[in-house]
């Protein structure tokens, strides 16, 4: 019994465990993966939004993939405020130019990066957004300035189809 020599039985044990592990994995994976977004959820089309009626200083909220998207036509003061911020003052440094292709239009996911609440417009210490759940403050570019949220509000993929229509997704 004390001999350490590998014999035929050891080989059979190891081979059986290995095959068993692969088999269990093959059965368990479908059980886990079925909880991931299904084909119908993934197939959710992109959303086109008519923004012709949106005046400067106004925001509309549209639903895209079950999440709110803020489309804000910013005023000149807001743009100036967003551009004047020094990058070293930011928790998640990002230039305003990188967030708003056309400075007048800010399109971003209206989801607080802390725990997913919808921040309130024109609130908080930085004239941007304020999340009522746990007190995160965002500036006029949707960048995190104060509070527990770790990153800026996300910018989704979007484009101007024409002067009046934004396509999100």
């Amino acid at each position: 019994m004390s001999e350490k020599k590998t014999n035929r039985r050891d080989f059979l044990f190891t081979a059986t465990y290995a095959v068993g592990a692969v088999g269990v994995g093959a059965v368990v994976w479908p059980m886990i993966d079925q909880m991931n977004p299904d084909a119908s959820v993934k197939a959710l089309a992109s959303t086109e939004v008519d923004v012709s009626s949106l005046n400067p200083g106004k925001t509309i909220t549209v639903l895209w993939r079950g999440k709110p998207v803020f489309i804000r036509r910013r005023t000149q003061e807001e743009i100036a405020e967003a551009k004047s911020v020094k990058l070293e003052d930011l928790k998640d440094p990002q230039k305003d130019e990188d967030r708003a292709k056309d400075p007048e239009w800010l399109v971003m996911l209206g989801v607080c990066t802390h725990l997913g609440c919808v921040p309130l417009d024109q609130k908080g210490d930085y004239n941007g957004w304020f999340c009522p759940c746990h007190g995160s403050h965002y500036d006029t570019s949707g960048r995190i300035r104060k509070g527990p949220a770790p990153t800026n509000m996300e910018i989704p993929k979007y484009e101007f189809v024409n002067a009046n229509t934004i396509k999100i997704g």
Binding site: I32, V41, K67
Partner: peptide, 17 residues
């Protein structure tokens, strides 16, 4: 989180599970 939701936000798949 996406796996828990079964989507990109809390929605019907989340409710049923």
């Amino acid at each position: 989180v996406t796996w828990l939701w079964g989507g990109y936000s809390v929605d019907n798949p989340t409710l049923t599970r």
